[in-house]
Amino acid sequence: MSQNKEGVITIIETIVNELTILIDEIRPFIEQTKPIDHNHVQQHLDNLVTKMQGLTDKTHLTYELIQVVINSIHSSRNELKKSVDGLLKKTGVQLKKITTTTEEATNKILDVAEELDAEQLVIIEKLDSLKSNNNQEDIIEDIKKMIFKNQDAAFTIIDYLQFQDITAQQISGAYALLSDTEKTLLYVSNLLKEFDFGEEGPEIVLPEIDPKSFNANAIFIDKGNIQNLIDDLFETGDTDIDIPNDHNDIELKDLQASVADSEDDFDIDALFNDNNSGNQASQDDIDKLFS
C-alpha cells in the first residue's frame, strides 16, 4: 500500500488537509448558503477513512519497531548485568585472591627467614665453644663471617618482602576502581530497566573498601633519593625543599637516580628498545638494573 511508504507525520498532515477541505465543503451547508455536493464530500470522507486506516497500520508498525527497540534494550541490559555480575566480580575476587596468596607466600618466606636467623645464633654459640677447645681460630672466624653474611642475607629478604604491602595497596586501588565501575554500570543498568514494565532494578549492594586503608599510588622502588629530601625537610623545617608533589615525578626522579648510578655499567636503551632486536639486553644487564 502506498500509505505504508508514508511516514506517520505525512499521514496526519494529509488527514488534517482532508479535514480542512471537508470543513470547507460542509461550511456552506451549515451556513445554508450553498447546496452540498454529496459526491465531493463522500470522496473526501473516503480519503479520510483510507488515511485513518493508513495511520492505524503505521501506528502498529511503529509499535512493532518500539518493541524491537525495547527487546534490544532488554537484551543489552541482560548482557550488561551478566558482565557486571560475572567479569567484574570475578576480577575483584581474583584481585583479593592475589592479595591472600602473596600474604601467605610472604609469611612462609618470613617463617624460613626467622628460623634461619635463630639457627645462626645457635651455630655461632656452638662455634664459640668449639673455639675454646681448638686452635683452628682462622677457620672458625671465616665460618662466623659466612654465617653473619647469611644472616644479613636473611634480613635482606625480609626487607624485600615489603613488596607485599605495596602490591596489596596497589591491588586495593584497582579493586576500588573496579568497584566504582561496577556501581556505574549497575546505575546505567537500572536506568535501562525502566524500559521493562513492572520490573524493579537490582539494588546496588557492593562491598566497600575504606579509602583510607590504601594508597593506590604506592610503588616499589628504591626511595633513597626522596628519603634524603624528606630527611632535609625534617632537619631544617624548610618546606621549600624540592620534594615532588606528583607521583609520576617521584617515580621518574628515583628511577633516573637509579639509572644514573649504574649507567656506566649497561645500556638502558638497549634493554628497553623494542626496535633494536639485535641489541637485546642480557640477563646480566637486567640483573644489574634490578640489583
Binding site: 626487607d159 605495596i166 626511595k223 620534594i243
Partner: peptide, 27 residues
C-alpha cells in the same frame, strides 16, 4: 608509609610526626 608526595609529608609534619620514612625502607 608509601605516601611520598610533598603535601602528604608536610601534612604529617604539621600533625606532629617526629620523623618520616618512605616504604620500602632498610633497617
Amino acid at each position: 608509609t608509601t605516601r611520598s608526595v610533598k603535601d602528604d609529608i608536610i601534612e604529617a609534619m604539621k600533625a606532629g610526626v617526629n620523623n618520616y620514612i618512605v616504604k620500602p625502607f632498610t633497617p
